[in-house]
Simulated scan of single mutants.
Amino acid sequence: MAVIPVDLAGRSYEVRVGTGLLANVAEEAAPFLRKTRVPIVADANARQHWGEALARSLEAAGKEPRWYDVEPGEGSKSWDSLARLTDWLLSEGVERGDHVLALGGGVVGDLTGFACAILKRGCGFVQLPTTLLAQVDSSVGGKTAINTPAGKNLIGAFHQPSLVLADLDALSTLPPRELRAGYAEVLKYGVLGDAGFFEWLEGEGGNVVALQPEPLERAVANSVAAKARIVAEDERETSGARALLNLGHTFGHALEAETGFSDRLLHGEAVALGMVLAARYSARRGELSLDDAARVTRAVDAAGLPAEISALGLDCDGRKLADHMLHDKKMDAGTLPFILLRGIGEAWLARDVDMADIAAFLDEELQAH
Rank of each mutant, 00 (worst) to 15 (best):
S289K: 04
G286N: 07
M275C: 11
L273I: 07
E287R: 12
R284W: 14
R264I: 04
L341H: 09
A278C: 03
L362D: 10
R264H: 10
P337W: 06
D363T: 11
I339F: 12
A302W: 01
A272Y: 09
H324C: 05
F261Q: 13
D332L: 14
A270V: 08
E269Q: 12
G274Y: 04
A311I: 02
R351V: 13
V271D: 08
R280C: 06
L362F: 15
R298K: 08
G260Y: 11
R285H: 10
E346V: 10
A299Q: 03
I309R: 03
A278N: 06
L265G: 08
G274K: 02
A299N: 02
D328T: 00
G274Q: 03
K329A: 02
W348Q: 13
A270H: 07
D328M: 00
L340N: 06
A299R: 04
A350P: 13
I309T: 04
I344M: 08
A279N: 07
R298A: 13
R285F: 12
W348C: 15
F361H: 14
L362Q: 09
H267R: 08
L273W: 10
V276G: 10
E287F: 11
H267D: 09
I344E: 09
A307P: 06
D332V: 12
D315K: 03
V296L: 05
S289R: 05
G313Q: 02
E346Q: 12
H327F: 01
L277Q: 06
L277M: 05
A278W: 03
G260Q: 14
F261A: 05
D354W: 14
L340E: 04
W348S: 14
R319I: 04
L341D: 06
V353W: 15
I339H: 11
S289D: 03
A360W: 11
A347R: 12
D263V: 06
D363R: 10
L265P: 11
I344D: 09
D323M: 08
G274M: 01
D291L: 13
I309Q: 02
A302H: 01
Y281Q: 07
L336Y: 03
L277W: 04
A279Y: 07
K320N: 09
A293S: 06
E287V: 13
L266D: 13
G268Q: 13
A356H: 14
A302I: 03
P306L: 02
C316K: 02
L340M: 05
D292W: 00
D315T: 03
D291T: 13
A270P: 14
C316R: 00
Y281R: 05
L314N: 00
A311K: 06
L336C: 00
A270L: 07
